[in-house]
Simulated assay, not measured.
Amino acid sequence: MTETILPAKLAEIRDEFLELPETDRLQLLLEFSYELPPVPAEYEDHPELRERVVECQSPVYIIVDVDDGDRVAMYATAPAEAPTTRGFASILAQGIHGLSADEVLSIPDDFPQTIGLTRAVSPLRISGMTGMLMRTKRQVRAKRA
């Protein structure tokens, strides 16, 4: 199995999870849920820029922006009462923010399965995180076109 090179921030997050015993990984995910970066004020009055992640049971929305320098900003909203989903959104928002569009597009689609949580959370939740990643990549492609 060849290992895909992950962008440094996502590799660091993945390694942080994998260094912990499986029993402690949910606690780290909960910590990430508290660190979900807020959506900047300039997006507040623009609901049309938010995309619902229908793969998530909770109402999760993402906003993806690609600037003139081809740098990606990814923001997400997820309810506090859905800490697992919010934690996944936070991992992606923190790990993707500031990457080049090419770096985002090169993130392996199975990244959510590589952080060591597949036995700790339901497959539906992993699917939700995968949905967030796929929608982010699709938006990056669309905004570059």
Score class of each variant (00 low, 15 high):
M1L: 06
M1D: 04
T2V: 07
E3W: 02
I5K: 09
L6N: 09
K9A: 13
K9R: 15
K9S: 09
R14K: 15
E19Y: 07
L20G: 12
L20D: 10
L20V: 04
T23W: 10
L28N: 06
L30F: 06
F32K: 15
Y34T: 14
P38E: 11
P38D: 11
V39W: 00
E42N: 10
D45S: 13
H46I: 06
E51Y: 01
E55Y: 01
C56V: 03
C56H: 05
Q57C: 03
S58F: 05
P59G: 02
V60F: 08
V60A: 09
V60M: 10
V60L: 11
I62V: 15
V66H: 12
G69T: 02
R71W: 01
A73N: 09
T77A: 00
A80E: 07
E81Q: 10
E81T: 11
G87T: 07
G87E: 09
G87I: 06
I91W: 11
Q94G: 10
I96F: 09
H97W: 09
A101D: 08
A101Y: 03
S106Q: 13
D109S: 15
L117K: 05
R119G: 09
A120S: 15
A120I: 05
S122N: 08
R125K: 15
G131C: 11
M132S: 01
L133I: 02
M134N: 02
R135A: 12
R135N: 06
R144V: 06
